[in-house]
Design a protein around this nucleic acid. Structure first.
Lengths: 152, 152
DNA sequence: TAAGTTTGCATCGCACACGATATAATCGCT
DNA sequence: AGCGATTATATCGTGTGCGATGCAAACTTA
């Protein structure tokens, strides 16, 4: 019986899982400086782009469910990074708005993407590789988002 | 001021993070059938390859710390998937050994890698792409494991 | 317009990840 | 042999992720 497929080193999924964790770890020193966790940083990236946005829109952009986003936003509100308020148009909907404090954090965050990219580029991986990888992952995200949409 | 780098869609890290979560989700139906979580499945892949292995070796292979692995193994012992016992040679070390139940789970797990791969391949992504991606990720893991080894 | 369905958000419980810390065993150096 | 440093593992607290469930507002459709 051939079991090589069950070996860790032959999996494609394990390297993605590990890389993801290691990248989050690589962010840590930079995010510590501005007092953010990685998921909080993701939320702020959404809000820096579009202040005043509904919880639902955030879940869509980050592909996370409300049972992850709601407590995350709650913690961020406690950190005075944002304000939540019921929409008047649709009472079910909650709008999220940045505080001045969070807007100013953007200055500290601006150099982070470049720093991370510098960490990831070396003699074996160039920018073209990275962009190619990004395309491929986005393709996978499309496939997987579709195939897993009924799994909860 | 150019802020395009702070946009979610221009990040390479976010697609990796999302793909990782979506892949775990894609595993779920298959792992549910044999009553495992994804990290538990990873531990078993290590043990199916080498039964009787120290906790330390497992942390190295999975690149996870003991504060993640210890409780994980404890839960798995409660599920009767493995036994833990102090090494006689080195009383600090704990050896992990599969139960018969876990060994038999391997039969149920055998088709899983192929199923997952089938999910990931389509008209836009072929096996060569996947293998190329794996190489690139392994390169990143090397870089990141080194650069983050002092971050805790 | 009334009843059933869907939608938007929240809460609860559980399983990771991981920083900080603790403890015991072993190692290294004198 | 003795003692400080290192190593292997465990525990605690916090922050995600996410399945299950709850609830109220909005929608649908008879």
């Amino acid at each position: 019986m051939e079991d090589s497929k069950l070996k860790l080193e032959n999996q494609i999924c394990f390297p993605i899982y590990s890389t993801s964790r290691l990248i989050t770890k690589a962010y840590k020193p930079f995010l510590d400086e501005i007092g953010l966790t990685y998921p909080q940083y993701l939320v702020l990236m959404v809000l820096w782009e579009t202040d005043e946005i509904s919880v639902n829109k955030i879940t869509q952009k980050l592909m996370l469910n409300t049972n992850t986003i709601s407590p995350l936003l709650k913690r961020m509100e406690k950190l005075e990074l944002l304000k939540r308020s019921r929409s008047t148009k649709d009472e079910r909907s909650v709008n999220v708005k940045l505080t001045e404090k969070a807007k100013q954090l953007k200055t500290g965050a601006r150099p982070i993407p470049e720093k991370l990219l510098k960490t990831l580029l070396n003699e074996n991986i160039n920018l073209t590789d990275v962009l190619q990888l990004k395309e491929m992952l986005n393709e996978w995200i499309k496939i997987l988002a579709d195939k897993t949409k009924n799994i909860d």
